[in-house]
Simulated assay, not measured.
Amino acid sequence: MFRDVATIVSTLLAAGALTVSIAAFRGQRRREDFELARSLHEDLTSGEVAQARDRLGNLVRSKGSLDPDQKRQAMTAYFTLLWCFERIDIGRRTLATSPSKRALHFLINSIRWHVEEWEKMLPEVRRRLADGSKEPDDGDSTKALGQLVEAVRDVPAVDTSQASGRG
């Protein structure tokens, strides 16, 4: 009889340990997912990508022609922004594999405005960079932005002003 009780207690302890391990794993995964989403948003909104966005925004608003140095700088900014969208799309696809889609939706809602705005602005940037000649060879790089545009359209917008205390 003592063996049966010991077996039952051991089994219950093992099941409890497994439950705690699974909960810890899920909690760690959720923290990592949100950290990835936060870092991707930070990548888009700070540092060299923010400078690239500023340069390209000025390009769209200006009407003058570009001298060779300005064109080189604008082209660098263009690909800096596109490559950032590639990194975000890779992160988005990674978050899509998570059992909980909360971090994915957080990312999408954080980048929504940026994606929608650059979807509108990039054709004009491309036109300005071409300046009567061949447009930039960016087919592979623009695919990520297209995939992000689709993802943004697929995920309903969430009003986060209440959650943040604004409003």
Rank of each mutant, 00 (worst) to 15 (best):
E48V: 09
D43T: 08
G47T: 07
R72M: 11
S62V: 14
S39D: 03
A52S: 08
D43C: 00
E48N: 02
R53E: 10
L66G: 09
S62I: 08
Q51H: 07
K63V: 11
E35A: 15
S62H: 10
R87P: 00
R55T: 14
D67H: 15
S65R: 13
L36D: 00
K63L: 07
N58L: 10
V60E: 06
L59W: 12
D69W: 10
D54F: 12
T45W: 03
A50Y: 09
S39Q: 14
Q51E: 15
D33H: 02
N58T: 03
A77Q: 13
L82A: 04
A37I: 00
L81A: 12
G57T: 08
D67V: 07
T80D: 11
A50L: 05
L44A: 12
C84T: 06
Q51V: 14
A37S: 08
G47M: 09
C84V: 03
C84P: 00
G47Q: 13
R61C: 03
L82S: 02
R87C: 02
L59I: 02
D43E: 01
F79E: 02
A77W: 12
S39F: 02
S65V: 13
E48C: 04
K63P: 12
L81I: 05
T80L: 06
S39R: 08
L44I: 08
R53L: 01
S46V: 04
M75E: 11
Y78S: 02
R72Y: 15
